[in-house]
Simulated assay, not measured.
Amino acid sequence: MKYVLLAAVLALAPVFANAAGPVEGAADMVAHRAAYRLTLDRSRDTAGIQRAEGAMLFEVQDACEAWATRQRFTLVVTDRDGNTVETSSDYSTLESKDGQTLRFSLTQVTEGAVTSRVSGEATQTEAGGRVVFTDPVPNEMRLAPGTLFPMIHTIRALAAARAGQRLLLAPLLDGTTADGPQDTTTVITGGWQAPAENSRFPALAPFGHARMRIAFFEPGQQGGASTPGYEVSLRYWANGVADEMKMDFGEFIVNGQMLELALAPSGGC
């Protein structure tokens, strides 16, 4: 299952001191801290999942030439016999605002034992790039031209929504698997929505938003009758905040509802 968590890595920021200029739309992304409650939406009939509950904390910090992100995720799943499994993960990224460099680290723990570690660094240019893994084993892969990193993918998806597009197809490297990039299909539903009053989170009222569904496929399996390995539906605001999401892990689907939001002040670089 594709559980992702992001850890603070501001100490790596000097790596990007000579980075190229930010991509268009980078200035729209806001540093923030958001807390989510996770609950079971529904379970497939054959899965036998009766309950799922947990929490997620997601943070984005502006490291001037880069974004430092952290997501902490804990989920307890209960089956029809009353057995429970607790999974948590901690996933960190440092992504340059020019979309050319990504550092990532993921640790996943199940029932107190480490079950997965992924870490490494990737670089990308218009001609392609490479990713070098240090965990779980040293390995290197080439990246096809057009491969996106997580924040740049969010920016491109929001730009597509504002432009009235329905689809965004792109390979995505997020560092959550040692298998390298995954093909993604982003479907934008309902079009771009104008700013409106927001009683729960007034800080989001000045921003438009769009709903989208992102499906992740193994390379070469995208489209047709292929079933995605993971799928997430979100409501993304123009500043990069997602306040609602559904995470489809195959056997069951989890709701993520934002409970708290704190926007960081801009500037300081």
Rank of each mutant, 00 (worst) to 15 (best):
A55I: 05
R72W: 09
T84K: 15
A262M: 11
A262D: 12
F216R: 08
S116W: 00
E218S: 10
L75M: 12
L57I: 13
T134P: 00
K246L: 13
A17D: 12
F217Q: 07
A7T: 14
V85Y: 01
A196R: 14
D179V: 01
M141W: 06
M56W: 02
T177M: 06
E24L: 08
A68K: 07
A63Q: 10
G146K: 02
E65R: 11
S105R: 08
T177P: 03
S105A: 11
R72E: 13
R211H: 15
G128D: 06
S105D: 14
A161C: 06
K246T: 13
S92E: 14
T78W: 03
A17W: 04
A196L: 08
Q222P: 01
T110N: 11
E218C: 00
A203W: 00
A19E: 11
F252E: 02
L158G: 04
C64Y: 10
L106W: 04
R235W: 02
P22G: 06
P171N: 08
F216A: 00
R72F: 14
G99P: 02
V9D: 11
P171C: 02
Y3A: 08
T186K: 04
R213Y: 06
T101S: 15
A161D: 01
G220H: 07
A27V: 07
Q71W: 01
E218D: 15
G240E: 12
T87C: 04
A170H: 08
C269T: 08
V132M: 09
L57M: 13
L102I: 03
V77K: 06
A262W: 09
A170M: 05
E95T: 04
P181D: 09
D179L: 11
E24A: 14
D243A: 04
C64T: 13
P14Q: 10
A238P: 00
N255H: 14
L148C: 07
V137E: 14
T184N: 07
M56T: 13
